[in-house]
């Protein structure tokens, strides 16, 4: 057996071992990288789902607060409802996006279209509005991105009335302003809130509130 052969065989073994070790190191690094990217992609997709899941609450929250700001505890509207509602929705959407941000996932909500129009009430409410919001929710990181679209068509009904309030002596007290905020979609009522603007609540029989 020649010495040259052993030399070549050892060289081949060493080269093979080095190449294999290097490639397995690359394999581990690539697998680790894939693991991190996979978990990150899942987190991005989950965040987009979460953001989209809460989108109706953002709309309802802004509508309720706008209704109370314009019509609540006041005998006359204080501003144009649709203007206030649109501004409030944009503001709440920004706050919502900020709440869903963290160091890994960047979350953005973009209003694609808002429709708000006063409609004739057919249910006895003082005011009625048709409202629709079409919004895009995007979660992204350095390696993944997910966008979901959501849209709502709602009807907002407001009842703002001042009932006659009489104390025990038959004297009419100052008006107690009651308000009803009701929001429904094609499936029925989503919100049906009564707001008693006086505090403490006024009893029909008894002393007038201070």
């Amino acid at each position: 057996m020649s010495k040259g052969f052993f030399s070549a065989a050892i060289n081949a073994l060493v080269i093979g071992a080095v190449v294999t070790a290097a490639l397995f190191a690359l394999t581990y690094a690539a697998s680790y990288d894939a693991s991190v990217k996979g978990l990150e992609a899942k987190r991005v997709a989950d965040r987009a789902y979460d953001g989209n899941h809460g989108s109706r609450q953002v709309v309802l929250d802004s509508l309720m607060d706008s209704a109370f700001a314009v019509y609540g505890c006041s005998p006359l509207p204080l501003a144009d409802f649709c203007t206030v509602a649109n501004d409030t929705y944009a503001s709440y959407l920004a706050g919502y996006s900020s709440a869903l941000n963290d160091s890994i996932v960047n979350f953005n909500s973009t209003p694609l279209g808002i429709y708000c129009n006063s409609t004739d009430s057919t249910t006895g409410f003082n005011w009625s509005f048709a409202y629709a919001a079409n919004t895009s929710f995007t979660a992204n990181s350095s390696n993944a991105k997910k966008t979901l679209l959501d849209s709502f068509s709602l009807t907002l009904e407001l009842l703002n009335y001042t009932p006659a309030v009489v104390n025990g002596s038959g004297t009419t007290c100052s008006g107690e302003v009651l308000m009803k905020i009701a929001v429904n979609d094609s499936n029925g009522y989503l919100i049906n809130y009564d707001v008693n603007c006086s505090q403490p609540p006024v009893n029909l029989i008894g002393d007038c509130p201070p």
Binding site: Q57, L60, D61, M64, G72, C73, Y189, L190, I191, N192, Y193, D194, V195, N196, C197, S198, Q199, P200, P201
Partner: peptide, 13 residues
Amino acid sequence: LCNCTTTACTLEN
């Protein structure tokens, strides 16, 4: 919303 867990709620200003 307003800590209301149901559709209907009464709020006191």
